[in-house]
């Protein structure tokens, strides 16, 4: 089983890369016959990824959520799966290459550095932690997709304003759809992060009695949560829309990334498990 896991670990970035190539080729050429081919590629990659996660969970006796490289592989599958659902539900296909590049990056880093971890800290063997991590990852996947759609909104917005009617103009869905996709992803991400924070608040004093409220990860997550809460409220109240809203979404994503990097690699935080 271990050798199978190692093989899939090498294959996964290759599969994501192939899927990205097919999506990108379709984006450039826009050929009708590729429409279903690329979806099949994504499905096969997702299926392989799912097998990999199940095998790891069985072989190492814990779901791969206990360090940053395990989390990256989960992040890769949640982003691709979310996009797969978006594509199925909305039938919007021109945005694939911009999303799928992210799981490729996350999986590549994970595949390079992930280890066969059989011994995990006792504190990490908690059901609450499992729900906390999964909802946090769903939250960040939502923010990532929201940021990508936000970014695409800005590019298309600029292209239309500057009379640039190239590939971006021809292949992307319209501005309202991009704004809506960015908003919906952000709302789903926000709900998931809220759940993660609530569980974190319950679990944290039990697991780490000496934690500090000034922990960089806590401060960062709170900041991200506040940013999205502000943006979503403004949208609901009809104050903010379009460009302002997507800039806020992109800012939230950048803060989330910085917070993750700081807490996992640079600062001393209870979140630094690796």
């Amino acid at each position: 089983m271990i050798s199978g896991i190692h093989t899939i670990n090498i294959l996964l970035p290759l599969f994501y890369f192939l899927t990205l190539v097919v999506y990108f080729y379709d984006f450039l050429k826009g050929e009708k016959k590729l429409v279903n081919v690329k979806r099949v590629f994504l499905f096969i990659t997702l299926f392989l990824h799912l097998i990999y996660i199940v095998l790891r969970t069985i072989a190492f006796d814990h779901p791969p959520i206990t360090n940053v490289f395990e989390i990256f592989t989960i992040l890769a599958i949640t982003i691709s799966f979310s996009y797969f659902l978006v594509e199925l539900v909305s039938d919007i296909r021109g945005t694939g290459p911009f999303i799928i590049i992210l799981p490729l990056i996350f999986q590549l880093i994970s595949s390079l550095f992930i280890q066969d971890l059989t011994v995990v800290k006792e504190v990490l063997r908690s059901n609450l932690l499992g729900i906390h991590v999964i909802s946090a990852l769903l939250g960040y996947s939502g923010f990532t997709i929201s940021a990508v759609y936000g970014f695409l909104y800005l590019v298309l917005y600029k292209d239309i304003k500057l009379n640039k009617f190239g590939l971006i103009f021809n292949r992307l869905p319209n501005l309202e759809v991009l704004e809506r996709l960015s908003l919906y992803s952000a709302v789903i991400g926000f709900i998931a992060l809220t759940i993660a924070i609530i569980i974190g608040i319950i679990w944290l004093p039990i697991a780490f009695p000496s934690f500090s409220y000034l922990d960089p990860k806590l401060v960062g997550s709170t900041l991200v949560w506040l940013l999205y809460a502000g943006g979503i409220t403004s949208k609901v109240m009809g104050k903010w829309r379009g460009k302002k809203l997507v800039i806020l979404s992109i800012s939230g994503f950048i803060v989330a990334i910085i917070s993750t990097i700081l807490s996992n690699f640079l600062a001393q935080s209870f979140h630094s498990f690796y």
């Binding site: 298309l156 239309i160 103009f169 869905p173 319209n174 501005l175 309202e176 759809v177 809506r180």
Partner: peptide
Amino acid sequence: QLTEKIFSN
């Protein structure tokens, strides 16, 4: 057609 690249409906 350009309006349809801005508005969805």
